[in-house]
Computed example of a mutant assay.
Amino acid sequence: MSVWFALLAAMLYGISFWIQGKFTLPALGPVNMLALGYAVGVMFLIREAVRFLRDHTTIMLKTYGSLCGASLFNLGGFSAFSWGALNGSVSVVTVISTLSGGIAAILGYFFFRERLSVIQIGGVSLVLSGALLLHLYG
Protein backbone atom coordinates (compact mmCIF):
# COMPACT_ATOMS: atom_id res chain seq x y z
CA MET A 1 0.00 0.00 0.00
CA SER A 2 2.84 2.38 0.78
CA VAL A 3 4.16 2.03 -2.78
CA TRP A 4 0.84 3.27 -4.15
CA PHE A 5 0.96 6.28 -1.82
CA ALA A 6 4.55 6.95 -2.91
CA LEU A 7 3.50 6.82 -6.57
CA LEU A 8 0.58 9.14 -5.85
CA ALA A 9 2.93 11.53 -4.05
CA ALA A 10 5.35 11.44 -7.00
CA MET A 11 2.53 12.21 -9.42
CA LEU A 12 1.15 15.06 -7.30
CA TYR A 13 4.62 16.54 -6.72
CA GLY A 14 5.35 16.31 -10.44
CA ILE A 15 2.14 18.13 -11.35
CA SER A 16 2.82 20.69 -8.63
CA PHE A 17 6.38 21.34 -9.84
CA TRP A 18 5.21 21.69 -13.43
CA ILE A 19 2.45 24.16 -12.49
CA GLN A 20 4.87 26.14 -10.32
CA GLY A 21 7.55 26.32 -13.00
CA LYS A 22 5.25 26.97 -15.94
CA PHE A 23 2.73 29.40 -14.48
CA THR A 24 3.26 30.47 -10.87
CA LEU A 25 6.96 31.33 -10.75
CA PRO A 26 6.99 33.57 -13.84
CA ALA A 27 3.91 35.45 -12.63
CA LEU A 28 4.64 35.79 -8.90
CA GLY A 29 8.35 35.20 -8.40
CA PRO A 30 9.88 32.76 -5.92
CA VAL A 31 9.25 34.59 -2.65
CA ASN A 32 5.58 35.37 -3.30
CA MET A 33 4.97 31.86 -4.65
CA LEU A 34 6.44 30.27 -1.54
CA ALA A 35 4.56 32.60 0.81
CA LEU A 36 1.23 31.99 -0.93
CA GLY A 37 1.87 28.25 -1.14
CA TYR A 38 2.50 27.97 2.58
CA ALA A 39 -0.43 30.30 3.35
CA VAL A 40 -2.77 28.00 1.41
CA GLY A 41 -1.40 25.04 3.39
CA VAL A 42 -2.02 26.85 6.66
CA MET A 43 -5.58 27.74 5.67
CA PHE A 44 -6.40 24.11 4.92
CA LEU A 45 -4.60 22.57 7.89
CA ILE A 46 -4.85 25.06 10.79
CA ARG A 47 -8.05 23.53 12.19
CA GLU A 48 -6.52 20.04 12.28
CA ALA A 49 -3.25 21.36 13.74
CA VAL A 50 -5.06 23.14 16.58
CA ARG A 51 -7.04 19.99 17.37
CA PHE A 52 -3.87 17.87 17.33
CA LEU A 53 -1.95 20.25 19.58
CA ARG A 54 -4.87 20.49 22.01
CA ASP A 55 -5.07 16.70 22.31
CA HIS A 56 -1.28 16.27 22.64
CA THR A 57 -0.34 18.81 25.27
CA THR A 58 2.72 16.81 26.38
CA ILE A 59 4.69 17.16 23.13
CA MET A 60 8.33 17.56 24.08
CA LEU A 61 10.45 20.57 23.13
CA LYS A 62 12.71 18.24 21.11
CA THR A 63 9.75 17.41 18.87
CA TYR A 64 9.03 21.09 18.24
CA GLY A 65 12.71 21.64 17.45
CA SER A 66 12.70 18.75 14.99
CA LEU A 67 9.57 20.10 13.34
CA CYS A 68 11.03 23.59 13.04
CA GLY A 69 14.27 22.19 11.62
CA ALA A 70 12.44 20.03 9.08
CA SER A 71 10.26 22.99 8.11
CA LEU A 72 13.28 25.24 7.56
CA PHE A 73 15.00 22.59 5.42
CA ASN A 74 11.76 22.14 3.46
CA LEU A 75 11.48 25.89 2.93
CA GLY A 76 15.12 26.02 1.86
CA GLY A 77 14.59 23.16 -0.59
CA PHE A 78 11.54 24.76 -2.16
CA SER A 79 13.36 28.10 -2.31
CA ALA A 80 16.30 26.49 -4.12
CA PHE A 81 13.90 24.72 -6.48
CA SER A 82 12.05 27.97 -7.17
CA TRP A 83 15.16 29.98 -7.92
CA GLY A 84 16.54 27.15 -10.04
CA ALA A 85 13.34 26.75 -12.05
CA LEU A 86 13.04 30.49 -12.56
CA ASN A 87 16.61 30.81 -13.82
CA GLY A 88 16.86 27.56 -15.77
CA SER A 89 14.91 24.68 -17.20
CA VAL A 90 12.02 23.44 -15.08
CA SER A 91 12.54 19.88 -16.33
CA VAL A 92 16.23 19.83 -15.38
CA VAL A 93 15.71 21.40 -11.95
CA THR A 94 12.82 19.05 -11.18
CA VAL A 95 14.78 15.95 -12.12
CA ILE A 96 17.80 17.01 -10.09
CA SER A 97 15.56 17.85 -7.11
CA THR A 98 14.40 14.21 -7.09
CA LEU A 99 17.77 13.41 -5.55
CA SER A 100 16.08 14.21 -2.23
CA GLY A 101 14.81 10.63 -1.94
CA GLY A 102 18.28 9.22 -2.51
CA ILE A 103 19.77 11.61 0.01
CA ALA A 104 17.10 10.66 2.58
CA ALA A 105 17.92 6.98 2.05
CA ILE A 106 21.65 7.62 2.49
CA LEU A 107 21.07 9.70 5.65
CA GLY A 108 18.79 6.98 7.04
CA TYR A 109 21.53 4.42 6.44
CA PHE A 110 24.30 6.44 8.07
CA PHE A 111 22.41 7.99 11.00
CA PHE A 112 19.80 5.36 11.86
CA ARG A 113 21.47 2.23 10.51
CA GLU A 114 18.46 1.52 8.32
CA ARG A 115 19.16 -1.42 6.07
CA LEU A 116 18.92 -0.92 2.36
CA SER A 117 18.19 -3.92 0.18
CA VAL A 118 20.17 -4.55 -2.99
CA ILE A 119 17.27 -3.22 -5.05
CA GLN A 120 17.11 -0.04 -2.96
CA ILE A 121 20.86 0.51 -3.28
CA GLY A 122 20.47 -0.01 -7.01
CA GLY A 123 17.65 2.53 -7.13
CA VAL A 124 19.62 5.14 -5.21
CA SER A 125 22.60 4.49 -7.50
CA LEU A 126 20.45 4.92 -10.59
CA VAL A 127 19.01 8.19 -9.29
CA LEU A 128 22.49 9.53 -8.54
CA SER A 129 23.80 8.32 -11.91
CA GLY A 130 20.86 9.90 -13.71
CA ALA A 131 21.47 13.24 -12.03
CA LEU A 132 25.17 13.05 -12.92
CA LEU A 133 24.38 12.26 -16.57
CA LEU A 134 21.81 15.03 -16.67
CA HIS A 135 24.40 17.45 -15.32
CA LEU A 136 27.08 16.30 -17.78
CA TYR A 137 24.96 16.01 -20.92
CA GLY A 138 21.71 17.83 -20.13
Rank of each mutant, 00 (worst) to 15 (best):
L133G: 07
G65W: 04
W18L: 09
A39R: 02
L67I: 10
L75W: 15
I19Q: 05
K62W: 14
C68E: 04
M43F: 04
L34G: 03
R115V: 14
F44I: 12
F78Q: 10
L134N: 08
I119S: 12
I15F: 10
S100P: 06
V3C: 07
F110M: 13
F5R: 13
F81W: 13
W4A: 11
V42R: 00
S125H: 12
L12E: 06
F17D: 03
V92P: 11
G123L: 13
S117I: 13
L132M: 09
V124R: 06
I96R: 02
L132F: 15
T24Q: 10
T94L: 04
I19P: 01
L61P: 08
I59T: 11
M60R: 15
I46N: 05
A35M: 12
H56P: 08
R51C: 14
M11R: 01
F44C: 11
A6H: 13
W4P: 02
S16Y: 14
M33I: 00
L134M: 12
A131R: 00
R54Y: 01
G101H: 01
P30I: 05
I103A: 08
L116W: 02
S82C: 12
W4V: 10
G21C: 08
S66H: 09
I15P: 02
F78E: 07
A80S: 10
M1A: 11
I106R: 02
S2W: 15
S66N: 05
A131H: 00
S89M: 04
L72F: 09
R115D: 10
C68I: 15
T58C: 06
L7T: 12
L107W: 07
V42P: 00
F81G: 09
L133R: 08
S16F: 11
G77N: 14
P26K: 06
G101W: 03
R47N: 05
F78G: 04
T58D: 14
A104G: 00
A35R: 06
L107A: 15
G14W: 03
N87R: 06
L128D: 02
Y38N: 04
F73E: 07
L132V: 13
T57W: 09
F17C: 03
F111N: 03
L8Q: 02
M43W: 02
L7W: 12
L75S: 13
L7D: 13
M33S: 07
A35E: 10
L126M: 11
L86Q: 05
V118G: 12
N32L: 07
C68Q: 04
G102E: 06
S16H: 12
F52L: 04
D55R: 09
M60E: 09
L25Q: 01
A6D: 13
K22D: 04
L61V: 15
S97N: 09
L25Y: 00
L28H: 01
G29M: 03
A6S: 12
L116F: 03
L7K: 08
G21E: 03
G88Y: 08
S97M: 07
Y13R: 15
L116Q: 03
